[in-house]
């Protein structure tokens, strides 16, 4: 994939300290909803809590918008772990986005597992705007978990 090469070069542009994306310093991508989890992460910030810096957050309006395609794409682009997080059941800003997505994720996750993707690498959570501490815990635990996985990451997303 040519695209990826280009991106790699860009990444190397001077920012040598960027996390390498390796197993010991993995790149995690978190897809979060704007209303609960994003605010929860902000709260961790305003409370000056500290957590692992391996995660990159992509903000979406709602978990209802967070498509399994995003998860696939994140893995393809070298993420070692993908987190999807939104409002607790009953709290979705758009009433039911998280309910609809929960069905899809449950199914998609089964499919991933069946096709040989290590399910330790995909995490789902409900984190409310007041759960800064939960955000911190989820990110830290997830990062540790990914770091502890065996270094060989061939799965259906890996280019041979």
């Amino acid at each position: 994939m040519e695209d990826m090469k280009v991106e790699k070069n860009e990444q190397k542009d001077g920012t040598a300290a960027a996390n390498t994306g390796s197993q010991s310093d993995p790149r995690l991508i978190a897809f979060v909803c704007n209303w609960c989890t994003y605010n929860g992460a902000d709260l961790a910030g305003t409370s000056r809590m500290k957590y692992s810096d391996n995660v990159r957050v992509i903000k979406l309006p709602c978990t209802g918008r967070i498509d399994p395609l995003f998860i696939v794409e994140a893995f393809k682009k070298g993420a070692k772990g993908v987190l999807v997080s939104g409002c607790h059941p009953g709290d979705c800003h758009y009433t039911s986005g998280n309910y609809h997505s929960r069905r899809k994720y449950a199914t998609f996750r089964d499919l991933l597992g069946y096709l040989g993707v290590d399910l330790n690498r995909v995490e789902f959570s409900w984190i409310s705007a007041s759960e800064g501490n939960k955000w911190v815990a989820v990110i830290n635990e997830f990062t540790d978990k990914i770091k502890s996985l065996p270094d060989k990451t061939t799965d259906i997303f890996t280019k041979k």
Binding site: T15, A18, N19, A44, G45, T46, R48, Y51, D53, R56
Partner: peptide, 20 residues
Amino acid sequence: EQVSWVHEDKERATAKAVDL
């Protein structure tokens, strides 16, 4: 909120800020 207030290692925080 999602970089300088939650991370300490300046080099790595900077790298994350660049990414975002």
